[in-house]
Design a binder for these strands. Structure first.
Lengths: 237, 237
DNA sequence: CGTAGTCTTGAATGACCTCAAACGCTGTGG
DNA sequence: CCACAGCGTTTGAGGTCATTCAAGACTACG
């Protein structure tokens, strides 16, 4: 059921930045939206890339699985971000699973539609190029971290990245605003949930973070930055 | 001195695939080429992205350096491949160094030219999207390997990737056709040159590879695949 | 023929993983 | 409302893969 949404949902989506009112309406008209409850797999690694997607609300985890079942979290997608779009143009196969980690609303366009839209509105292609470029640089940075840094610093970097992307200010500090398990963090940083747990426990005893079941609150972001950048810890405040 | 090259050099460049004769001539007319001796740094990490580049001949290493000087080899660029182009559209800053590891010939377009060309010939943008998309997927695969695989398998993967990209058939097997040090391999796989050296020595004693100063020859590619995929070694042949 | 860069190899250390067990929160069904 | 089951988390002990430290051999080149 191609539920045609309010064109307003596209506002703030980098993929459609700079399109005029008419073009946006055109884009929206061809979209399909659907609700995806927490835990739903939106597409699976290895499937033909039938559609390009974007997230209206919620949170989606992009996970790649290796030959022996090892999983790696490539990124988390938040509202306004596209996902699975790349596969439509390069490869034609989804390179990873997309799983909703919170109740979400997703919008998508069939591969054919996506291609047509892009030819009709060249601006979309340029936007996509910029977005993909940014992601490539981000993944390359992670590659460097993973190659050269110790586990503790990698975990600090991962949390800081999540704070930037999905941080919500609360009295006690900043919290990650979606369910995030130790296992997830481990799969983002190339370590085990045990090491993540130990690390967070150590930080908790220093008052830097506060943990909970699938929940992380950062009490002292600056201390986390110090760890990530390997600076001397600041004087206690 | 904008040495205008023969349009033929653009043939087989994925970035300009599908352009008609006239468009190609247009592209070539705006290009600058230059010879870059081995060891030359073509651009430096952190510099404003003044131009998009492509390689006519030779081999270029893309290296990212971390805050404390740790280096990571992002990829090797061969003839026909573009490099440093992404930075023109996303970020405006080169995210890595580009160094010629063999005497090379490079062609480049200023950022302004590049943008103009892309608007005039939308096909270039789509090509770029496909290329960047492919690279993103490749980097993501490496990220997964680095996260989940042991050093030996990572080295095997790296060599196989190089064979695919720069392998030259010779009597004894396949050799990497440009100078490649143990240090380079270490920086591609997130390990140390010591471990790479030990690993290659072990393989050499099993007759799988043959080493030399900045030189690697693969005698039994299938054995390397077996290591990379963690298959049982085949019966000796 | 000396020098600088590359490569090899040994020994010791240590960061992190693996294995193992137990704890505690959360939601569910009786 | 309580009990229980399931899942995520914590923590310990032991082992190991790879790094670090160290020294020496080889190769290319001026």
């Amino acid at each position: 059921m191609p539920l045609t949404p309010d064109p307003a949902v596209l506002h703030g989506m980098a993929l459609f930045a700079g399109l005029d009112r008419e073009a946006l309406a055109d884009v929206v008209r061809q979209a399909h939206t659907r609700r995806v409850p927490r835990g739903t797999r939106i597409f699976a690694q290895g499937d033909p890339a039938a559609a390009g997607h974007a997230l209206i609300d919620g949170r989606v985890k992009i996970v790649q699985t290796g030959a022996e079942g090892q999983q790696v979290v490539m990124r988390f997608i938040g509202p306004g971000e596209m996902f699975g779009t790349l596969a439509v143009f390069a490869g034609g196969i989804y390179p990873a699973d997309a799983v909703a980690v919170a109740d979400s609303v997703e919008i998508h366009w069939t591969a054919a539609t996506m291609t047509a839209l892009m030819e009709l509105h060249p601006r979309i292609g340029l936007n996509a190029l910029r977005i993909i470029g940014g992601r490539l640089q981000e993944v390359q940075s992670r590659l460097r971290e993973l190659s050269t840094e110790r586990v503790e610093r990698r975990i600090a970097h991962a949390l800081l990245r999540l704070v930037r992307q999905a941080g919500r200010r609360v009295d006690a500090g900043v919290e990650i605003d979606f369910p995030l398990s130790r296992q997830d963090v481990a799969e983002m940083t190339g370590t085990t949930l045990h090491t993540v747990s130990r690390t967070l426990s150590a930080w908790e005893s220093r008052g830097i973070v506060e943990g909970g079941r699938q929940h992380v609150l950062i009490r002292k972001p600056h201390a986390l930055v110090a760890i990530a950048e390997d600076l001397p810890p600041a004087a206690p405040g």
